[in-house]
């Protein structure tokens, strides 16, 4: 296993770790943290797959995608945090209501 495959597997692990935390937790801030972890996992998979070029320079197109992805992710996080603040201002709690299981 080379470096690229190792980091690609780590990225996949991060993605599913974040997905589990996103589904399981009810607090909005935790959900936003989990989404950021998922995003980092996806970026890691992309760049790890771009590093499969052997001895040559890595493929720069996924690098460009991930750079724009990081900036878009932070602005989406900022919007999500503003929404979470608004949810708390309107409903008093920063959590999604727990639905009763049948």
């Amino acid at each position: 296993m080379n470096t690229a495959l190792l980091y690609a597997l780590v990225g996949a692990g991060l993605f599913f770790l974040g997905l589990y935390a996103l589904i399981v937790h009810a607090h909005l801030l935790r959900k936003i943290l989990a989404i950021n972890v998922m995003g980092s996992g996806v970026f890691l998979v992309l760049v790890a797959l771009a590093a499969r070029t052997g001895e040559a320079a890595p493929d720069p197109v996924p690098h460009a995608m991930v750079i724009t992805g990081i900036v878009v992710a932070v602005s989406a996080t900022a919007l999500a945090l503003a929404l979470a603040l608004r949810v708390q201002a309107e409903t008093g709690r920063a959590e999604l209501p727990e639905e009763p299981l049948e």
């Binding site: 470096t3 970026f43 790890a48 771009a50 690098h63 991930v66 990081i70 900036v71 932070v74």
Partner: peptide
């Protein structure tokens, strides 16, 4: 990112992430 030969991403991640 530095280990994966992506210094541009490393700069952006260190500042933003």
């Amino acid at each position: 990112w530095v280990r994966l030969d992506a210094p541009d991403i490393a700069l952006a991640e260190a500042a933003i992430g």
